[in-house]
Design a protein around this nucleic acid. Sequence first.
DNA 1: AGTTTTTTTGGCAGCGCTACCATTTTATGG
DNA 2: CCATAAAATGGTAGCGCTGCCAAAAAAACT
Lengths: 332, 332
Amino acid sequence: MTSRYQAAVTLAQVAEAAGVGESTVSRVLRNHGSYSGKTRDRVMTAVERLGYVPNRIAGTLASTGSRLVAFVIPSLSNIVFADVLRGAGATLEENQYQAVFAVTDYDPAREEALVASMLAWRPAAVMLAGYEHTGRTIKMLRAANCRVVEMLDVDGTALDLAVGFSNRAAGRASAEFLLKRGYRRIGYVGHDLERDTRAGKRYSSFCETLSANGVPLAGQQIYREASSVERGRLGLDLLLARTPDLDAVYFSNDDMALGGYFHCLARGIVIPSQLAIFGYNGLDLGRVMPQALSTIRTPRVATGQLAAKLIVDSAPSQVIDLGFELIEGATA
Amino acid sequence: MTSRYQAAVTLAQVAEAAGVGESTVSRVLRNHGSYSGKTRDRVMTAVERLGYVPNRIAGTLASTGSRLVAFVIPSLSNIVFADVLRGAGATLEENQYQAVFAVTDYDPAREEALVASMLAWRPAAVMLAGYEHTGRTIKMLRAANCRVVEMLDVDGTALDLAVGFSNRAAGRASAEFLLKRGYRRIGYVGHDLERDTRAGKRYSSFCETLSANGVPLAGQQIYREASSVERGRLGLDLLLARTPDLDAVYFSNDDMALGGYFHCLARGIVIPSQLAIFGYNGLDLGRVMPQALSTIRTPRVATGQLAAKLIVDSAPSQVIDLGFELIEGATA
DNA sequence: AGTTTTTTTGGCAGCGCTACCATTTTATGG
DNA sequence: CCATAAAATGGTAGCGCTGCCAAAAAAACT
């Protein structure tokens, strides 16, 4: 058995104890419809005495729509998604919604399976990262009677709602910034671009912008794994071994950039005169580094907040670009 | 309305379409009980054709126990809890359990409210951080017909299951290590001890061990907020301003320690000869710093994994201490 | 006091599924 | 070939709640 069983108090028992009908108890508890003060007191007393806890499973089944919101996110280790969840949490909670989640590890096939499993809970909404989903995932989501929010990206066609910012624009802005600062030997250190498609979009847009300005990417080191501080450090080491004359490196995110920064510190490479570093995300720690990290700050928490608000408000289908902010730190 | 409504396909419709009884469909879908291959094919074809997605809300209500596991955790920003969730995720998923979560922000009153709200979903288990809960929380959990796992601590009396490690022992080990290395002017930089009771336990145990060895804490800077790299940096700055002659600082965790490390880099304080730094958690980035961070590595992912396994296996009540590992890095 | 209106209340049919039991079909054995 | 066991299947009563409707009680008017 899934769990030990000892009959829980039911609404019918409360009604019996309070000497009222079931629907009356239901009305009092949900503060819905009308009832007298005297009845309310009797009901509440019974609830208190019996230690009644409403069964939301039954409630959801009986009423039409659920108040579950399903998050199907690529990773929990990546602070980005934790921030989004944090942003959404408060709004959902205030409105009595319950968050449910599952982690895809950036795998579209897993995403598909998890979405299917989530839909079995008949959620009010499914929150996903980005636009890249399998055909079956899209089909399921369309067929399902629930809202869909694609978060953290706006470069593509939304299924229903989308909240985020343009990763392509971010890649371009990063490139333009480095070019403006006069860097001409620019490298890239990144992580799994095929799976983290948003990082992939930044990468390609970054490269295109460089090329368009006659400054092709001078070298790159791309890992197939997830991003980490360690990969950033090792990646820069490898990249510099192959291409020693770089004057700037664009990292796929701040974690990777921090790794690169550590590498420079360890090797005595002077930043930014000898090598410039540019990240992505705008994590708090970037501001605290001895030299503030040059990066792009993304509205992660705001994305979560807005995504939740759109669901709570039953907003019509739309795409909302929250933009981003380029932080001119001291590392580039 | 919570969501747009368009009647979803039901099991009855599948049964009708396949020309079999409802219970047969149910058996095939759950691979439970016996049915012929021919029937299975007919059912599966109908399922496919109609795009049927079983309704788990109804399924859970009809069967006895739910397969929901409720995580009520202090924070999502703190990588510790993300790691725990990550560890638990795989095991739960393999066993068809669904994770639900809510964030307390280290507030016992919020924890109480969230546990109440979670219990309404009749979860198979409630997973909490630590032992410090309000009386009502404890009462509710005892009354509820579900398993309870208290994670990341073993210093106290468990309600049911507990998986983690001793924060007191960790505090003591840290103190002993610093003493052994010959540090005698030791300070502390930490965050909200009253709310993060596990950090509080490490702190008090650390101080007691120092005192017991005739080396009382030489100074401290404690913030009331959550930990962050920034607080670590500012905290060390303030602490050194008041107590310049420290030779070592114990930080409430690695994030704080990283902030301290950045401060030293910025001020040209040589580590560890001029000032030693010691953290807690054993985050990956500690290994990648130019000087590996001296810290204590905690089995966060393993805690999550084991917690999930105990639930899945319906293990009897018990407390499991997974221990920790002291990492002799280069910063202390 | 007799109506009409408004407020409060209870009864009960589902929501979509699973568990249990009864029944039918198929396989096994003497 | 029939008795007996085994496998496959269908019917249906809930699970605990909500939504609807009708009935009862209270309040507001003539």
